[in-house]
Structure formats: structure tokens, C-alpha cells
């Protein structure tokens, strides 16, 4: 009760229409996952406490609940208001163990140590893996990634920023473990793109 300001932030900022908001955000994430490289506007957003962004908050509010532990990177975990917001609006337990997280929220992708510390699923249940939601400031002005694979007609291009260090090599390793692996959702300002584990990075630059 003493942290009244933090609490009032935590109780606000959900979708104005939760049913419709979750549906429209989900469709954007689904289409983004089905067509890697494509960028989809998010029509409905949340207004969470910083440094959680409106897009990432809308995505986690859409997908997480009491059945899905959420891991926060240190930039987010430092904020009690962010933790409270997630717990209050989704009911998801916050975990400190990367490998038991259903979702990982990453405010500073450039500081993310490694992708393979998260749950990669098992050979028999590759779906039991972590989905990372990376907060990026931009989807078109970073270093270009040329994409191939399911969902891509020939090649597609996307240029998110910031991204984890040595991303190309990390992503190649992630791809090599298929069907095990993590999937990435890139939450840009008001928009979303995705890199499912099937997506390959083409060698040449765009």
C-alpha cells in the first residue's frame, strides 16, 4: 500500500477493449510469425510503465497468463512497476530462470547474453520452448537481415535494431537445433515482426 504510485501505474494501462485488443494484436503476431520479415501495425496498444514499451506490453498481455512464466531482462527486472504491471494484468508468474520461461521480455536486446540459455523444448516436445519478445526501437533502419524459409517467398528483408550481439551466428546455432529452438517476436514502436526458428539468414547482405 505504501508504494501507491507504483500500484496505480500497475493497475492501469490495459487494453481499452481487452477482447478486441488481444484479438487484433494476436492476429498481427500470427501474421508476422507466418510471414517472417513482414511488419504489422499494432492497432491496439497498452500503456505500461517504462521501460516496458507499449508494443511489448500489448503482446505480453495478449499471450501470457497464469500458465506461462515470464522472464525479464535486467533492464525490466529492475523496475518493480513493470513486474507489478505484468503480474496484475496477465497473472503470469515472473521467473528468474531463463529455461523455465514460456516468454522472455527483453528491453535491451544488445545486452542479451545468449539465446541458448532459454528453454529450447525437447526433441519430442519442441513446442515447450521460450518465445522471446525483443523490444526494438526500429524494424527498418538497423543492419539488414535477409531471410529465407517457411513463410518467405524467396527472400525477405528486415532491419531491426538493436539486436543481440553476434546475432547471425547465434541464430544459425538456433536453426541448427531444429525442431528445438527459440522463436523471436520483435516489438517495434507500434508494430511487430517475428523470426520463428525456421527462418534462415541468407549469407549475402541486402
Amino acid at each position: 500500500m505504501q508504494a501507491a504510485t507504483s500500484h496505480s501505474i500497475a493497475y492501469q494501462g490495459e487494453f481499452s477493449d481487452p477482447v478486441r485488443g488481444a484479438q487484433s494484436v494476436f492476429r498481427a503476431v500470427m501474421d508476422a510469425t507466418a510471414r517472417p520479415g513482414s511488419i504489422h501495425q499494432l492497432a491496439d496498444l497498452c500503456t505500461p510503465p517504462a521501460p516496458l514499451t507499449a508494443s511489448a506490453a500489448a503482446i505480453i498481455a495478449t499471450l501470457a497468463d497464469a500458465e506461462t512464466p515470464v522472464w525479464l531482462d535486467s533492464a525490466l527486472a529492475r523496475s518493480e512497476a513493470v513486474r507489478d504491471w505484468i503480474v496484475f494484468h496477465t497473472g503470469a508468474p515472473v521467473t528468474v530462470h531463463q529455461d523455465e520461461a514460456s516468454f522472455a521480455l527483453v528491453a535491451a536486446p544488445q545486452s542479451l547474453a545468449a539465446l541458448n540459455g532459454f528453454s529450447l523444448g525437447t526433441q519430442e516436445y519442441p513446442d515447450r520452448s521460450t518465445t522471446l519478445i525483443l523490444q526494438v526501437s526500429d524494424l527498418t533502419k538497423g543492419a539488414a537481415l535477409v531471410l529465407e524459409g517457411p513463410g518467405v517467398n524467396g527472400t525477405a528483408s528486415i532491419a531491426p535494431s538493436p539486436m543481440p550481439l553476434h546475432f547471425a551466428a547465434q541464430w544459425r546455432d538456433n536453426r541448427a537445433g531444429f525442431p528445438r529452438g527459440v522463436d523471436l517476436i520483435l516489438a517495434g514502436p507500434g508494430c511487430v515482426a517475428a523470426l520463428p526458428r525456421t527462418t534462415r539468414l541468407a549469407q549475402r547482405e541486402a
Binding site: 478486441r20 488481444a22 500470427m30 501470457a64 497468463d65 513446442d127 525442431p179 525456421t198
Partner: peptide, 30 residues
């Protein structure tokens, strides 16, 4: 009923399964 009959928690669970299905084409997600 809720929009499209299912409650939101059920929809979320199904939506998560759909995203995994798309990410692992042809794999049957329980």
C-alpha cells in the same frame, strides 16, 4: 457468451499453440 464463444483464457492457450505450430511446421502441438 464471450465474443466467438470461447473465454479469453482458452483463446490465449489456443493462440500460443497456433504460434508454436507456425514456428514448427507440420509438428502437432498438444
Amino acid at each position: 457468451y464471450n465474443f466467438a464463444y470461447l473465454d479469453e483464457q482458452t483463446k490465449r492457450m489456443i493462440r500460443r499453440a497456433i504460434l508454436k505450430g507456425i514456428a514448427i511446421p507440420g509438428y502437432q502441438v498438444p
